[in-house]
Design a protein around this nucleic acid. Structure first.
Lengths: 343, 343
DNA sequence: TTGAAAGCGCTAACAC
DNA sequence: GTGTTAGCGCTTTCAA
């Protein structure tokens, strides 16, 4: 960082301001932070020097002495999934409104990447971490717990940290009930490999339970993972839908998966909803496009984000030893045109 | 941050490690960073102490002394726009691969928010900043330039910083040529209010030029902004398409806009492409869904992100006084089913 | 109302 | 090969 004339460029420090305005640096500090008591005259002189020098406090130094960074980390599975992206956007918005800057890590669902990114966040001494769609790797999680850094899990569940999530049971029930009410009996459940494992399991279990309650028997071989990068898996998936005894409906674990599945099915000549009904989960924007018109279970994204930030900051700024707080929100079914009675 | 037993919790520092392993902190520092020369024996003892204490270097202190943070800021218009989200995802990936952690700010296109978020990045002493879809507010930009912090603009243009962008001229030409070749003469241009102003202007100008070159005369009243939050604007837009002399095709400034416009048109009974042809710009994933099948001009996202990070890190780690570097990449037309000859 | 001084946890130049 | 020391730029007692 040099001037083009070769002289070293140095950002002005609090000392420069103090020198120029003829006061001590404690006074400058007081003026900058609005603390202590300084006379109107000196305050003006200091402010003048600040402006003249273009002084900007160095957070790096402040972080060190305060042992706080006003940084929060957000660990997310996949920003290409609109639900994740929209959640991150809202979290960033909330956090910045409360004076925090957001560090974002996209893990792609890889546990080892998750670990190394969290490691970096910890080194940077973030004040707290929000985990969205956390894969739930035991080692990573226990490492985090050991650090005693405030953590909030969003859209997934843990016994040891604050959590905020939609009630998966209720949501899946909503989806299955809708399908059953339409007359479907052969219903499959398709999940996203990137999805966090406890959420996946929770939704899968809720799926079975809801099926049973609806008087329909779930088949274990009809709960499968749709990984678009895995061509074998794709073939396997499609063979399911060309079998004689094939599902007439699918409850997908999220919209992203549902929409890619819709695409896959229709590329193979299987129409939605004429041949197969499809219901998603999340309520991402594009699901509402009339060309997609995905029936889905929506999550209250604004509330989810707001509550997550609130929990995190409460633990950062307030009482750190309170027992973990859990918040469940209610999902809602939005019926569009991807579901219909079976043929 | 207290233990539940009430004793103060203190993270182990380099001094604790030094004390436990019976060496000086410089030696600990050397083994942590792999610098200097330490004997195998002491290295082992130090590492043992590190493990025993769960020591993790404090980046906050390192940042202060090194005057480097290994943090880069990414300022983005709207994470709900898949193009932005995908770019951020790739940038984060590239950056973390090279040892940098990413601070993300979503500005929603508000200049004042842009300013305050950048202010926060600067206080945190980020090593560099990537601006995507920067609104280009003069004050904000010159503030940034004055800071002498490395900046790279992605998908937009400036004379004073490194830039990487697709060649808008070529892209828009591709779109217009395609439309003209199909026989369209009445072509409108619809832009996104969130889009960065110079990009918007560049694409608008390129649009006019391409029209002229195609032997078609552009009409200024057919270049308009589509702001989904503005109902009056929406009505105005639709009245354009119900006029006797109405456009038979639209070149949208990006896919996000194109897809929302497709939705709006079809909700008003105007079919795409039967009544109106539509071509987008960006090449976001969902444009490729068969239900959307948007003809569009794709940007090479991977290259864009890779090059942006490369430029930024080069300026951070290397020569700071080189003249601004410009990189233009080539866009490509992908013809799908949102375009057809005029009725 | 102001200033002096002691650190926060680390790196790096230099001495041993 | 290892230790000593002087900061990095700030906040925060505590005196004056």
């Amino acid at each position: 960082m040099n001037h083009s004339d070769g002289t070293q460029f140095r950002r002005p420090t609090i000392n420069d301001v103090a020198a120029l305005s003829g006061v001590s640096k404690s006074t400058v500090s007081n003026v900058m932070r609005g603390t202590g008591s300084v006379s109107a005259g000196t305050r003006a002189r200091v402010l003048e020097a600040v402006a003249a020098l273009g002084y900007r406090p160095n957070a790096t130094a402040r972080n060190l002495v305060l042992q706080r960074t006003n940084l929060i980390g957000v660990v997310v599975g996949d920003l290409a999934n609109a639900f994740d992206a929209e959640l991150v956007k809202r979290i960033e918005q909330q956090a910045s409104g409360r004076g925090y800057t957001t560090l974002v890590c996209n893990t792609g669902g890889h546990a080892e990447r998750e670990g190394s990114r969290i490691e970096a966040l910890l080194e940077q001494r973030v004040d707290g971490i929000a985990l969205l769609d956390f894969t739930g790797d035991r080692a990573v999680l226990s490492q985090l717990l050991g650090e005693r850094v405030p953590v909030v899990m969003v859209s997934c569940w843990s016994d040891y940290t604050d959590c905020v999530a939609v009630d998966d049971m209720v949501g899946v029930e909503l989806a299955v009930e809708h399908l059953v009410a339409l007359g479907h009996k052969r219903i499959a459940h398709v999940v996203d490999p990137l999805m966090e494992v406890t959420t996946r399991r929770a939704r899968a279990e809720a799926f079975e339970r809801a099926m049973l309650r609806g008087g329909v028997s779930p088949r274990s071989e009809w709960t499968l993972v749709f990984d678009p990068d895995d061509e074998d898996g794709e073939r396997e998936l499609m063979s399911l839908f060309s079998a004689a005894e094939r599902p007439t409906a699918v409850a997908a674990a999220n919209d992203y998966t549902a929409i890619r599945l819709m695409e896959l099915l229709e590329r193979h000549g299987i129409q939605v909803p004429a041949d197969v009904s499809l219901v998603g989960f999340d309520g991402i924007e594009i699901a509402g496009l009339s060309r997609i018109a995905l029936t889905t279970v929506t999550q209250p994204r604004d509330e989810l984000a707001a509550r997550a930030v609130e929990l995190l900051l409460h633990r950062i700024e307030g009482d750190d030893d309170a027992p973990p707080a859990r918040h469940r929100m209610n999902p809602a079914l939005v019926v569009r045109h991807s579901t219909a009675p079976p043929a």
